[in-house]
Computed example of a mutant assay.
Amino acid sequence: MRKKASMGRAAQHTDQDILDAALDLVAEDGVHAATAVAIAKKLGAPSGSVYYRFPSRDLILATLWIRTVKGFQIGFLEALAAEDPEAAARAAVAHTLTWTDAHRKEAKLLTLYRREDLIALWPEELGQDLTTLNDEVKRAVKAFTVAHFGRVDAETIGRSQFALIDLPYSAARQLLRAERTPPWLFDSVIAASAAVLRVDRSSS
Rank of each mutant, 00 (worst) to 15 (best):
S56Y: 02
S56R: 03
S56V: 04
I60R: 06
L61N: 08
L61Y: 03
L64G: 09
W65G: 05
I66W: 12
I66K: 13
T68F: 07
V69M: 13
V69C: 13
K70H: 09
K70R: 15
G71V: 07
F72L: 13
F72A: 08
Q73P: 02
I74P: 01
E78A: 13
E78F: 00
A79I: 01
A79G: 05
A79M: 08
L80A: 11
L80K: 07
A81R: 14
A81N: 12
E83A: 15
E83K: 13
P85G: 04
P85C: 06
P85D: 02
A92P: 05
A92E: 02
L97A: 04
L97M: 07
T98A: 15
T98F: 04
W99D: 09
W99L: 10
W99E: 09
T100E: 09
D101R: 11
H103G: 09
K105T: 05
K105V: 00
K105F: 04
A107V: 03
A107I: 06
A107R: 11
K108L: 10
K108T: 07
L110K: 06
R115F: 02
E116F: 07
E116P: 01
L121N: 06
L121W: 10
L121G: 00
W122A: 12
E125Y: 06
L126H: 12
G127F: 11
Q128P: 07
D129P: 03
D129K: 05
L130S: 04
T131Q: 15
L133R: 11
D135Y: 06
D135L: 12
D135P: 02
V137L: 15
V137S: 12
R139I: 05
A140Q: 09
V141D: 00
K142N: 10
A143D: 13
A143M: 09
T145W: 07
T145A: 07
V146E: 15
V146D: 14
A147Y: 05
H148F: 08
F149S: 02
R151C: 07
R151D: 08
V152S: 12
V152P: 01
D153W: 09
D153E: 09
D153L: 03
T156A: 04
G158K: 07
G158D: 08
S160Y: 02
S160P: 05
S160N: 03
F162A: 15
A163I: 02
L164R: 12
L164E: 06
I165V: 14
I165K: 10
I165P: 01
L167P: 05
P168F: 09
Y169N: 14
S170G: 15
A171N: 06
A172T: 01
Q174I: 11
Q174D: 13
L175E: 01
L175A: 03
L175W: 01
L176H: 07
L176V: 03
L176C: 10
A178T: 03
A178R: 08
E179D: 14
T181D: 12
P183N: 06
W184S: 13
F186I: 13
F186W: 10
V189H: 01
I190L: 10
A192K: 03
A192H: 07
